[in-house]
Design a protein around this nucleic acid. Sequence first.
DNA 1: CAGCAAATTGTACGGTCGTTCGTCTAGAAT
DNA 2: ATTCTAGACGAACGACCGTACAATTTGCTG
Lengths: 218, 218
Amino acid sequence: MSTQVGSGGGGKGDQPAKRTRAAGERSRARVVEESARLATVEGLEGLSIGRLAETTGIAKSSVHALFGSKEVLQLATIEAARESFIAEVVTPAFGATRSGRERLLALCEGYLSYVERRVFPGGCFFVSASAELGGRPGRVHDAVARAQQEWRDLLEAEAKTAAEQGELPAGTDSTQLAFELGVLLAGTNIVSVLHDDSAAVTRARAAIRHRVDGPERA
Amino acid sequence: MSTQVGSGGGGKGDQPAKRTRAAGERSRARVVEESARLATVEGLEGLSIGRLAETTGIAKSSVHALFGSKEVLQLATIEAARESFIAEVVTPAFGATRSGRERLLALCEGYLSYVERRVFPGGCFFVSASAELGGRPGRVHDAVARAQQEWRDLLEAEAKTAAEQGELPAGTDSTQLAFELGVLLAGTNIVSVLHDDSAAVTRARAAIRHRVDGPERA
DNA sequence: CAGCAAATTGTACGGTCGTTCGTCTAGAAT
DNA sequence: ATTCTAGACGAACGACCGTACAATTTGCTG
C-alpha cells in the first residue's frame, strides 16, 4: 500500500525528521511557518489544509491531525506570526536603544523595515488579518485583536516614557501620539503593498519624524 | 415542471420584476448591492455565488449567468462600491463646501462618518479589498488599486488647492499631507472595525485637525 | 523484548465551490 | 403571427474543502 514511505519518511527536507518523540512539534512548526507566509496572501480564511500539505510535503490528513481543526491551525498561525513580529520588530528595538523617544522611533523604523523587507510576502501579517477578520466574531478574531492591542500598548508605553523624560514637544498627548503612529504604520503597509510602492515607506518615515520631533529642526 | 413561475416571476421582492427587457439590469443591481455588503465581511474572494443566490432569492445558475464569471461579478461589485463611496463621501463634500482646506476637511469627515455609520458592515470597502488583494496580481487587484489611487489623488488635489490659497501652515507639503491623511483614515478604519471602537474615530478627528491647521488655535 | 503512545498515512464522506448545459418563459422584433 | 433573444431555472459536473477513521510505522519505556 505505502507507495514511498520506506524510502525515508519525511523525504526532502533538511532534517530527515526521524520519528522521534518530538517530531510532531517540528512538523507543527514547519506547517505553521508556511501557514503564516501563505496567510498574508490568501488570507487566514483562505488557508487550505490541502495546499499546506502539498507545499510542506506532509500528508493532508497529517496536517489536519497535527492541529485537530482548521480553527486551531489558524490560532497557531497567529501565534507564530506574533513571535516572528516580536523577533523582527520589537526585540531589535529593545536591544540597542534606550527607552523613550529613541526606542519609539526604533519601533516605528523596525516596523517599516519589516514591511519593506517583506518578511511576509503580503506585508504585515496583522494588518492583513485585522482587515480580514475585523467584522467577524470568533476566537480567531479575538486572537488577532489581542495581538494588535499588545502592539499598540507597546507604542503607547514608549510614548509615555518619552513624554515623561521630556523628549517630546511640550503638550504632547502620548496616547494620541501612539494612536497616530499605529494607524499611520498600518495605513502605510496597505498602500505600500497595494501599489508595490516603496515611496510610501519613505513618506511614512518623514511623517513620523515630523510628528515625534515637532516642526522645529531647521 | 415549473413550480411557481406563473404566480408572478420574482416572487417576494418589492418589485414583481416583470420580465421586461431591462429586468436583467435590475437583477444585476440587486445582486451587486448585496455582494458589496457581503464582501466587506467575507472578502471579495470569499464571496460565494451560492450564498448570493440565497440572500437575493435568485437561482444560483442565474446569478452566474448574469455576470458570466465570478471575476466579472467581483469587478462589478467593486464598481458598485465605488459609486456608493462617491455618493456617501465625495459628493456631500463637494456639494456644500468650498474647495481647499474646507473641502479637504469635509472629505476626511465624510470618510470618518461613512466608517462610523457602517455603510458597509465590515467598514470601508476599499480598505478591506486593498488588504485582501494587495499581494495578488490580476484584474481585480488592479481595479481596487485604481479606485484607491483615485481617492488619494482627490485628497491631494484638494490639499494642493488649499496650499495655493494659503489655508495651510507655511511650508506644508501638500503631497505629503495628502498621503498622511489617506493612511490615517485607512488605519483608523481598521482599528475602529477590529475593536468596534468609536474612540478611534474621535482620535482621528483630533489628528486631522492638528495636522491640517497646525499647532496654533489656542 | 514486548507493549504503549505518538506520528503519519491513505481512503473516504458529505458539503460547497464555480461552472456548464438544456429548457422554458415572455417581451421585442419582424 | 412568427421568429428572435435575453432572463431565469433545475440538474449535474468535477474540483476542492474540512473532517473522520482505521491502519501502520516508529521511538520510547517498562
